[in-house]
Simulated scan of single mutants.
Amino acid sequence: MTTEPAHDPRPAFVRALDQAEQQVAAVSPGELGKRTPCADYDVRALLGHVVSVLHKLERAGSGGDARGVPDVAEGIADDGWARAFAEARGEAERVWAGDGQLDRMVELPWATLRGRDALEAYTHEFTAHSWDLAHATGRLAELDPDLGARALEGFSKFAPPEERSEQGPFSPVVPVADDADVYTRLAAYLGRRP
């Protein structure tokens, strides 16, 4: 009897980071004050959040407590977001490069998961935040539809509608047309108003 090898989430994670990094690098200082579909986040705060998420992943992957990392990184210069993202990404990818990380239990601010499940969840988070940035800055045409489809499927497991309220990170599902593109459906599923 043979067993199937466990799924490695890192290739999709890298693609999601590539997409997010492209969106981060495209933001100009004049766009930092624009509103995003994320409640309470303008573009600057959302950039601070995605940088902070990378620091949380690095800390959790190193065996530390990611709850000690703030939700939004601050003190980054208006023209320093691309560099801050790239540096934090490098640290996170270095920590998660070893295969042993994937089956180790990691402590995240919202759950304790196997490493592979944590990376899968954060792949979907970076995909959703790429849409948030693209929506706020008018760069929607640059998004990878396969990542959007994966995130839509993944969030149906990680964030089922029946477990949500107005106070959580995901609002109730917003209705959209059946023929809406995958990112519109993803945003609506997460409670954003595309």
Rank of each mutant, 00 (worst) to 15 (best):
A92Q: 05
H135S: 12
V95W: 00
H135D: 08
K56E: 07
A39M: 05
A60G: 07
A121V: 07
A60S: 14
E87R: 15
A82Y: 06
D79A: 15
L32K: 13
G138L: 04
D65I: 00
G90V: 03
D103C: 01
D132G: 12
G64W: 00
C38L: 00
E107S: 14
L119A: 00
A88H: 13
V50N: 03
G100Y: 01
A128F: 12
W96F: 10
G100W: 03
A82P: 06
G63Y: 14
I76A: 13
H49G: 01
V69R: 05
P29T: 06
A73Q: 06
L46T: 01
D79H: 14
A77R: 12
P109C: 09
L108V: 04
L108I: 05
V72F: 04
D78A: 15
R114W: 07
L108R: 10
D79Y: 12
L57I: 08
D103N: 02
L46Y: 04
S28F: 03
D40Q: 04
D117A: 08
F126I: 13
R59K: 01
G80I: 14
V69L: 01
V50S: 02
C38E: 11
K34E: 10
I76H: 11
W131I: 09
G90M: 03
T36C: 06
D99Q: 09
L32D: 06
R67F: 03
A128R: 09
L140S: 09
R83F: 07
V95D: 00
K56Y: 01
G138V: 10
T36F: 05
A134F: 12
L57D: 05
A136E: 03
V72M: 01
D79M: 14
L113N: 11
V51C: 05
G138A: 12
G98Q: 14
R116D: 08
A121R: 05
Y122E: 07
H55R: 15
A136N: 04
L113R: 09
R94W: 02
K56I: 02
D99H: 08
D78E: 14
R59S: 00
R83Q: 14
K56D: 04
D65Q: 01
A92D: 02
T36K: 00
C38S: 06
D42N: 15
A118P: 06
D132I: 11
G63A: 11
A134K: 13
V43H: 08
C38T: 10
